[in-house]
Amino acid sequence: MLIVKDEGTVYIAASTAAVLYCGYMDQASCLLPENLQVWKVPNDDGIVACAAGSGFEGDVFRYDGKLIEGELTKEKLVLETVPKLRRVLGRYGKLDKDGDMQVRCAFAQKDRVFVISTGFCVSEITDCAAYGRNAGRGTSALRIAKEMKPEERILFARRITHENERSPLAFIDTATLTPRIVGVEASGKEETE
């Protein structure tokens, strides 16, 4: 998961690669809107979300308009959203013996973005952040690419952290509120579909 704040808008990107536990799915399926790990929370409050690293956690919440409503604040996430995450994920056996979940979630609205860690800590991101494999490298890459446009910056960081991965990224931002796919050609040039 890669997050960038730029001129009052938050951009979040996640991988589109999906692997089944016991099976195989064609790669075009990974790009279907309902399978992306980013989505707009289904209410009128302009909140976007990302649950990167697992399909289930995104699936179980993507249709819940009451997961987070109104103005996005850390207090609301801590007092309302985190308990709901714990309750629902616990019901499905998705909390480990320490009570931690297996993914990180991000919620963004206008120019604010918060990340909920696997241990349910809520942190506000002030500039940029990378999570997942090679996260340190990714965060540093986002920082040094500060002069680039947000999507270019994220794709630059992606190239640094996932040198051999060719699957496109799913993007969403707090201005358009619409998921979109951004691919990487073999030449290393970026193109938008």
Partner: peptide, 8 residues
């Protein structure tokens, strides 16, 4: 997952 083409 919704499947676009095929799944095994």
């Amino acid at each position: 997952q919704r499947v676009a083409d095929y799944c095994l």
